[in-house]
């Protein structure tokens, strides 16, 4: 009960702490807000094409029966770890792309309530890590590093351990 309330209180209390801090530091609060909100709007516009591409692909994948087939194919492996079969596509997509996993999360929520076990587990899987391959390509690209095999293996193992943990506590 208390733990669930921490989540509910975190957002409003964060806002209040930030605003009190801002009043003390005497900046122009409203100008800052508008500036930031504009950046947020630009961010939304910049992810729109990716979201359209990926949600459409997921919808096509789902309606053609390909999703069902993939789940059937991978279910033996993931059922060993006791993951519900609805979460398999999300687990595959999460390390590859943030927008892609959002698209899959959306399709999971269409058939499972966000408050159900599957809904909660999927939310945790999608929110608890960043797209591994995206981070590696951004940062290792910036230092022109080609040999990334080990960090990829470490990251994928850590990801698997963390989602196993999520399944147990969920």
């Amino acid at each position: 009960m208390i733990i669930e309330n921490i989540g509910t209180f975190s957002a409003p209390s964060l806002i209040i702490i930030i605003l009190i801090f801002a009043i003390k530091s005497r900046i122009n609060i409203f100008d800052s807000f508008i500036k930031g909100a504009k950046e947020g709007l630009e961010c939304m516009i910049s992810i729109l094409p990716a979201i359209i591409a990926l949600i459409t692909a997921v919808t096509i994948f789902k309606s053609s029966g390909a999703l069902e087939f993939t789940i059937k194919l991978l279910n033996p492996i993931f059922s060993l770890l006791k993951f519900p079969k609805e979460c398999i596509p999300l687990i595959i997509m999460k390390p590859i792309s943030g927008s892609g996993s959002n698209a899959i999360l959306n399709s999971i929520f269409e058939s499972n309530s966000p408050d159900s076990y599957i809904g909660k587990l999927s939310s945790i899987i999608s929110g608890s890590s960043e797209a591994i391959f995206y981070i590696i390509s951004t940062y290792c690209g910036s230092i022109k590093l080609k040999n990334t095999k080990n960090i990829i293996i470490f990251a994928l193992i850590s990801f698997l351990v963390s989602i196993l943990f999520a399944r147990i506590i969920c």
Binding site: I17, S25, I27, S32, G36, G40
Partner: peptide, 19 residues
């Protein structure tokens, strides 16, 4: 987008105020 834009604004305040 409403929620995201709102939070971007709040977080900008956090950044500008030195939080």
């Amino acid at each position: 987008s409403g929620a995201i834009i709102f939070w971007s604004g709040i977080m900008k305040i956090a950044q500008d105020s030195g939080f």
